[in-house]
Design a protein around this nucleic acid. Structure first.
Length: 280
DNA sequence: AAAGGGTGCAACCGCTCAAGT
DNA sequence: GACTTGAGCGGTTGCACCCTT
């Protein structure tokens, strides 16, 4: 596995980009695309390595980049996604349209990490609970204190446990999307059914923030259904959105879909770890 | 006003992975 | 199958700017 020699070659410029260099890069990519980053600087007439050009384009010059401060919603989304995905900045960025992995990484290190450190959980909140997946320890990072996942105090004396599932859930920006419907069947299990929808924006004009449901444990049933043993109320029915980034390659689409299903599956399991669940 | 420390962000580094030969 | 190459990712660095003393 050879490593790209990058900018070590004599004569290649490093450091901040000048407006002139930006203009050259932008106009070249607009006219010719960027199928080969390594060849690009030479063809465009830039004294930069391809890697530097790629970074400049993807992190700064790309037309679809959203500049400016992160909104509260975006920050919350990052916190929650980081909870589930860890330091997978590109995966997090994929769910935040217009934001780059580099930007999210910077925001995390400069703002959000401190924010979470300063957060003090309510005195009566409990972070450990009895579940049938106790062997799998819940998240242990400081971000585990995220209040969005805390147990509702009103629920402590009942088997009705409500939890918020990914309140700022994945993107609406993808061109293809599925719905996931949670239905409790006659065996007291929550079945997660996936259905592809043709016009996601019509189907879900906006994100419904009240993704509340109940769960105890889960198991993957087959390729498309996820079954979660609930043992709880029948009145649970929620719809959550599942993004499926449309790839040019159809095989990749189904792989991405599976990854997203795994993501949601982890959301269920991990969110459950923040609850004091009843003993059965 | 100047110096020093802190902060934020763009850019780089080094590694892994996948595709091509 | 072994090797090379290019792209992408996460971690880290460097520097400009801001704030405090």
């Amino acid at each position: 596995m050879g490593r790209a020699p990058c900018c070590e070659k004599m004569g290649l410029k490093k450091g901040p980009w000048s407006p002139q260099e930006d203009n050259i890069l932008i106009s070249y990519i607009q006219n010719n695309g960027h199928s080969n980053w390594r060849a690009l600087p030479k063809l465009a007439g830039l004294l930069r390595c391809g890697k530097s050009c790629r970074l400049r384009w993807t992190n700064y010059l790309r037309p679809d980049i959203k500049r400016g401060n992160f909104s509260k919603e975006e920050e919350d989304t990052i916190i929650q996604l980081h909870e589930n995905l860890g330091n997978r900045w590109s995966a997090i960025a994929a769910r935040l349209p217009g934001r780059t992995d580099n930007e999210i990484k910077n925001v995390w290190h400069t703002h959000l990490k401190k924010k979470l450190k300063n957060y003090q959980p309510p005195q009566n909140s409990k972070r450990h609970f009895k579940t049938n997946h106790d062997s799998k320890k819940g998240p242990t990072t400081e971000s585990s204190n995220n209040s969005d996942f805390s147990t509702s105090a009103n629920n402590t004396n009942t088997h009705k446990k409500h939890m918020k599932i990914a309140p700022n859930s994945p993107v609406l920006s993808s061109s293809e999307m599925s719905t996931v419907t949670l239905v409790v069947d006659d065996r007291q299990r929550v079945i997660i059914k996936e259905e592809k929808i043709e016009s996601p924006l019509e189907y879900f004009p906006k994100i419904d923030e009240s993704f509340w449901t109940e769960e105890l444990s889960g198991e993957k049933n087959n390729d498309n259904d996820y079954v979660m043993a609930a043992g709880l109320d029948q009145d649970i029915q929620a719809q959550i959105q599942l993004s499926s980034v449309k790839e040019e390659n159809l095989d990749n689409t189904s792989t991405k879909m599976e990854e997203d299903m795994d993501f949601w599956y982890n959301v269920f399991i991990k969110t459950g770890d923040f609850l004091e669940l009843p003993e059965f």
